[in-house]
């Protein structure tokens, strides 16, 4: 990542105050509604941890989420939270960020929300490059509606709408985001919580659109149906599939790791942030007139 693309106090150690996740959550609403072993809770902690280490004021944080299991996470965060319509959190977030550049806008979305019904918003958010962080929780399934096939469901998996096995190909969300021009693209598994926290930190600190795919697990209605084990087994198998980018891509995938999953910071580019570009262009146009 280029130095110029970093803003604010990225990477600043905050050992002064130990991280207490409870000070970032709305206690009254706990225990949360997620199923046992759902990786979304781990991702939520990592996000709060990243915010803590960046020392962002809670009042300045706007969490925008869509519909689905991921969409419900926002309600548990003690910040300005907006639980919007299915697939549209990136659209809401674009308006919010353009209207209020002072807010730190973070979108929490899921694989169905972000890639299916909201796919168009994702690619245009990547293209537009507003300073928004998009955390997409990928559990390969529509959990809230009962376990239907999603755009990231692996081939041959059983879901309630693919009772004979999934025959569709899955999206590689990170490559999609990169191709669409996202400034910062990364992926991590939940079991690597501190690493995930660091990735989210870099993503939030990045001045532009950052897209983070978090590999989460849906045990209750996806893992069981596909004999993937319980949550510990699922997160460990995710870990076994990961191929950290810091290895320099030297790991040979075939034939030993056919499902290798590149993790870490996958791509960055140094395009200017759209909001600043727009305001500067408008201001200079006004001066000329």
């Amino acid at each position: 990542m280029t130095k110029t693309a970093i803003k604010k106090n990225a990477g600043k150690a905050s050992s002064k105050n130990a991280f207490d996740v409870m000070s970032y959550l709305r206690h009254d609403l706990f225990p949360h509604f997620l199923c046992p072993g759902c990786g979304h809770g781990i991702a939520l902690r990592a996000l709060m941890w990243a915010i803590h280490e960046l020392e962002i004021d809670k009042d300045r944080i706007a969490i925008v989420s869509g519909i689905g299991c991921s969409g419900r996470l926002g309600a548990y965060i003690d910040a300005n939270t907006f639980h919007t319509t299915h697939g549209r959190p990136l659209a809401f977030a674009a308006g919010l960020k353009l209207a209020r550049p002072d807010l730190e806008v973070i979108v929490i979305t899921g694989d169905g929300d972000c890639l299916a019904i909201g796919g168009n918003h994702l690619i245009h958010a990547c293209r537009r490059n507003l300073d928004i962080t998009c955390m997409m929780l990928n559990n390969e399934v529509y959990g809230m509606t009962g376990g239907q096939v999603s755009p990231t469901t692996s081939e041959d998996r059983y879901t309630t709408t693919t009772p004979l096995g999934n025959t569709e190909a899955a999206f590689d969300a990170c490559r999609l985001a990169e191709a669409a021009g996202a400034g910062f693209v990364g992926r991590e598994v939940t079991v690597q919580t501190p690493t995930l926290k660091n990735l989210l930190k870099d993503a939030i600190a990045y001045n532009g659109f950052s897209f983070i795919e978090v590999i989460s697990d849906c045990t209750e209605i996806y893992g069981r149906k596909n004999d993937l084990g319980n949550s510990p087994e699922m997160i460990l198998s995710q870990k076994s599939q990961m191929r950290p980018n810091s290895y320099g891509g030297v790991i040979v995938d075939e034939p030993f790791r056919p499902n290798a999953l590149p993790t870490g910071v996958l791509s960055t580019n140094a395009r200017p942030e759209y909001g600043e570009t727009y305001r500067n262009a408008m201001a200079s146009a006004k001066r000329k007139k």
Binding site: F92, K97, L98, A99, R100
Partner: peptide
């Protein structure tokens, strides 16, 4: 969506 987002931003 963006209109609602902006309005929620005040």
């Amino acid at each position: 969506g963006a209109v609602l987002g902006a309005s929620m931003g005040g």
